[in-house]
């Protein structure tokens, strides 16, 4: 009995040693040279593997960074300026700074604002629905609400609001990786400049229809009236295809456009509640989502 156990232990140990030695030599023989800086840079990256930089994961991005001559066009939105400047320090290059950004949904077509005109009964995917037809409401530009964006978000920063039927961005968790921007078949997400206190002013609409059609299908549609365009002192607003767009890099958050918008399609978030004004028309202009 004891000899059996002894022989077993001995033979297995011997086998293990022989295998270990063989493996060591094989590993030496087939060693691939890799720039050691890649590992160091990769350690600095957030390891989210979200693809927000445009490369296939953090390792791939680290390889690109090490090989690159300048950091132009190379940016990790998740790590932000801090990470990029640290990597720049490691590699002895100049970091390209970018303003921190946050994803914003440019649609406010809640169940209340945008009446349903039909009922969708296919696979629950915005992309499939979008390829099939214009959507459950009269608006052919707005959110389907099947949550393709929620599925792709790696940071748990998106969830569907069951009341409005629209996705909600959690500003704290959003890293501006851009996955939702790519996933949305209607291109409703935009990465906008992140202000202190997550203040935001943006046109929550992508409807390019003429005013009458847009308004008929959604109570808070941009009707392309150009009032905001005219009132903006910073030339931050551009009009295109019956639709206003606020350039977040030029906007100074003066909020003039918000009061001006006749359909409340320009949304302000994160500002203190305004004192109710005497003028009834403007008193409802604060819409918080």
């Amino acid at each position: 009995m004891t000899t059996t156990i002894l022989y077993t232990i001995l033979s297995l140990s011997l086998l293990g040693t022989v295998a270990a030695i063989a493996l060591y030599f094989v590993a030496q023989r087939f060693k691939v040279f890799e720039d050691p800086r890649i590992d160091i840079v990769e350690a600095e990256l957030p390891a989210a593997n979200c693809g927000g930089c445009g490369y296939a994961g953090c390792r791939n991005f680290a390889e690109t960074l090490v090989k690159s001559v300048t950091f132009e066009g190379l940016y990790c939105p998740v790590g932000g300026n801090e990470t990029m400047s640290r990597i720049a320090g490691i590699l002895g290059r100049e970091a390209v700074k970018q303003d921190p950004r946050v994803a914003v949904l440019r649609c406010n077509g809640t169940c209340e604002n945008r009446p349903r005109t039909n009922r969708y009964d296919g696979a629950q995917s915005c992309t499939i629905a979008s390829a099939l037809y214009s959507g459950e409401t009269g608006c052919q530009y707005g959110c389907h609400g099947f949550g393709d964006c929620v599925v792709v978000c790696n940071f748990d920063a998106l969830h569907m609001d069951p009341v409005t039927g629209l996705p909600v961005v959690n500003d704290e968790k959003c890293t501006a990786c851009g996955a939702c921007v790519k996933a949305c078949p209607r291109n409703l997400f935009e990465l906008r400049k992140r202000w202190k206190g997550d203040k935001k002013i943006y046109v929550a609409c992508m409807n390019e229809d003429k005013g009458g059609v847009a308004k008929k299908n959604c109570a808070v549609a941009c009707i392309g009236c150009t009032k905001c365009f005219k009132v903006c002192p910073y030339e931050a607003i551009v009009m295109k295809n019956n639709l206003a767009f606020i350039d977040s890099d030029k906007c100074k958050l003066c909020r003039k456009c918000v009061t001006e918008c006749p359909t409340n399609s320009i949304i302000e978030v994160g500002f203190p509640v305004r004192k109710p004004k005497v003028d009834e028309q403007t008193s409802e202009s604060t819409v918080n989502i």
Partner: peptide
């Protein structure tokens, strides 16, 4: 003008 076609798009 635009009118909805079978896909609902105008």
């Amino acid at each position: 003008e635009e009118v909805q076609d079978v896909s609902g798009y105008r």
